[in-house]
Design a binder for these strands. Structure first.
Lengths: 241, 241
DNA sequence: CAACGGATTTGATATATGTCAAAAAGCATG
DNA sequence: CATGCTTTTTGACATATATCAAATCCGTTG
């Protein structure tokens, strides 16, 4: 699942939260940074279970995750729901709402989190003045498209074991990109949520994780996971069929 | 699958192909239109099976389909492939390549087609000068994200019959939006390609279409399809489970 | 620390879809 | 228009995942 990449490049040292430093990390000159800082985006706390936005909410801002993590999900009229992503620090959510000025999905905090709100009107205005920012915004959106297509590949053509392997590798890479351990981390989401994301039932998720453990690929206990055999997982994903 | 919408609003009367008229249909004033026309995008013909771009090609332009239709697909290293979309007249492809400056998938003509090439550098420059165009580009990209998430929902939580119903409804809507019959049209793609798109094997696609026919929802013969019961198909998609 | 409720694991079984195979139908070619 | 190749349909059977159910584990709360 190499198509699934972190939404934005990672800031390991992000003390202050403003557009220039965290939300849109790019190389700008001082003058451009000053302009950005004037936006002084709002910073807000969210507790586990809080909604960042809901289906149908009016679109005003993009949201950069300062720290913590979120899940995004679509709700279908018949009650079906599909988790479309798990987002972590440094990633930006809300891009789907630009198309209709209304949020097409909902975002829920998976733990205590801090969010930078980026008013989209301001962002558009600024990106007309700062080509680097404009280009960055475009790449951001395009990367989301590529990520989604990677998930389509996963959902459309991988078996349960391959899906789980791809999922774990993706988490591993994103933790590594943040300077955290790529082999030992806590899953923030339940089996049910993993299942929804991967198009599997929670029992299948549980069974398949047990299987990967039996194969010596991982050690897992509830939410604690240790990856023992990264190349093995990669082979699993690439292992055709 | 109301999430899956046409990529851009449709131009029923598109005699000339330039940014102002077809490729990026929006409301601009005359001055803005003149600016756009200076771009005078290249117009080129493609035969069935021709590649518009391939995996790994350097990204330079977006492509607007003037007429005809294309499929886009991802190739996985192990030979797996996933059709990520079927595009028709008025839709824009290539957005995935912005993220890395390299095309992440390939686009193949499904019939004789005419393409308008839109140099992306010029588009970015122009969209800094024309806010309406900038907003339009953003909506274009966001709509692609929403579309992809709709497919994730389909692949992650629908059964074969529901997937086919959603697929047919989506085609129907897009044909209708172009002023063509929403209930009678030719499928441009093979059962294999439909299967790849919907995460099903071609035999399952064939069987399921036969089933929909038995239920009186459609009349299908090879590539000719007539939809007999639009509400029935809608109920099928929304019919939970 | 006991008790409760939700999450996870595991087992037994059901079912939807995949796989393999063959026939039929359609389409292109000489 | 006869031939051969590809696509589609249909059947029989295999298998991966879903479903239903129960036991266990875990975290929370009083």
């Amino acid at each position: 699942m190499s198509q699934i990449v972190p939404i934005i490049a990672v800031q390991s040292a992000c003390s202050s939260c403003n557009l220039a430093s965290l939300c849109l990390p790019i190389n700008l000159n001082q003058q451009e940074i000053d302009i950005l800082d004037e936006m002084s985006p709002l910073k807000r706390n969210y507790a586990r279970g809080d909604y960042l936005y809901r289906n149908g909410d009016k679109f005003r801002s993009l949201f950069a995750i300062h720290n913590g993590s979120f899940k995004t999900q679509i709700l279908h009229e018949d009650g079906r729901e599909q988790v479309t992503g798990f987002q972590m620090a440094g990633e930006i959510i809300g891009l789907d709402a630009i198309s209709t000025d209304v949020h097409a999905c909902e975002a829920v905090a998976m733990e205590s989190s801090v969010i930078c709100e980026i008013p989209f009107n301001k962002l558009e205005t600024l990106s007309r003045e700062i080509p680097t920012l404009q280009r960055h915004l475009h790449k951001l959106m395009s990367r989301e498209i590529v990520r989604d297509q990677g998930i389509m590949l996963l959902l459309g053509s991988m078996r349960a074991e391959e899906r789980l392997a791809a999922f774990l590798l993706n988490l591993s890479q994103r933790y590594a990109a943040r300077g955290w351990s790529p082999t030992e981390f806590q899953l923030r989401m339940s089996r049910h949520e993993i299942g929804s994301y991967l198009g599997l039932k929670l029992e299948t998720v549980s069974r398949t994780l047990s299987l990967l453990q039996q194969h010596g690929m991982i050690r897992i206990h509830i939410k604690s996971i240790e990856i023992l055999d990264l190349p093995g997982l990669q082979a699993c994903v690439s292992g055709s069929r």
